[in-house]
Amino acid sequence: MSRSAPATLIGVSDSVPEARLRFVTGKGGVGKTTVAAAYATLAATHGRRVLAVDTVNRGDLAPRIEVVSGRLGGPGPTVLGLTTKQALDEYIKRYLRVPIAPSSLGPVSRIFDFVSTAAPGVREILTVGKIGYEAVYGPWDDVVVDAPASGHVIELLSAPASLRRLAPTGPLASQTLWLQELLESDRTAITVVATPEELPVAETDQLLKRLRDETEVAVDTLVINRVPPQVEKVGRALLAGKAPASDDGPTARSIRSLVAVAVDRDVTTRPFVEELNELAEAFGLAVVEIIDDPVNPTDTAAAALADHGSLAAA
């Protein structure tokens, strides 16, 4: 597969094999990065060539993938940390064929500032353009994107359409059609991650509605992350009696208080697990529940995805 860029990318999606492209999003703090790492490592363990894209680029994705890949051996996923500046440099070089290198264009940062802060949709089109380019021309079977949180992912995925609306004739706009085709194709899918808590559930509802109404990209999976173990019954029985110890020393009191917290977590989160399942049903999504595991969260998430058959096509 050639990695050199053609003069135009319009229409190429018909003839060139594409990777599967998965965006993982959700409210900030629900474990998007862990779930993205789980998708990437799961695919890699099945011998697939995986690119994991870190769009937030705080350096959180690579270590999670390394921890798991290191244990499994073999070639792990390749991790790409994406910044707007890199994407812009690459874009200018590839498509505009500016005779001088971008970095020598006076302070290139001025263009960067302008593009990233002042021109609507441009930052997003560069980011999603780079991802799309890798999915179409990169040597990958799977491209997994640790996508930005809620509101920003809408901007990212709707960038091709909104840029064409705002600037129908510009050179950037001419690049939007093939991207939109890719995003709307059945090779591209979104996983929304949520935790069973009040604000994440409310935000997930909003996010699913906006993804449906404002983008043409299909959401197919809802991951319910950090589901507490179901311990209500056994915990209450214990708290009602004298167990675990007949004495009432500080240790026994501490353990009883921990059991009370574990029961409370189970009881208070269960309605939210139910609400998320109802949401998934309403939006026609598959549900993957991941039991809370602060020790090896990525392994546990990958195991849950594997059980669910998230890599059936491998």
């Binding site: 507490p228 173990p229 179901q230 311990v231 056994v234 915990g235 029985a237 214990l238 167990a243 675990p244 110890a245 240790t251 501490s254 353990i255 921990l258 059991v259 917290v261 574990a262 977590r265 189970d266 809370d292 595991d293 602060p294 020790v295």
Partner: peptide, 21 residues
């Protein structure tokens, strides 16, 4: 509490939940 203190708890699931906390 020590991790070994949790052995007194009935059922692995409860031990897991408390250990996770």
């Amino acid at each position: 509490v020590e991790p070994s203190d949790l052995d007194a708890l009935p059922e692995e699931r409860l031990r897991q939940a408390v250990r996770a906390l």
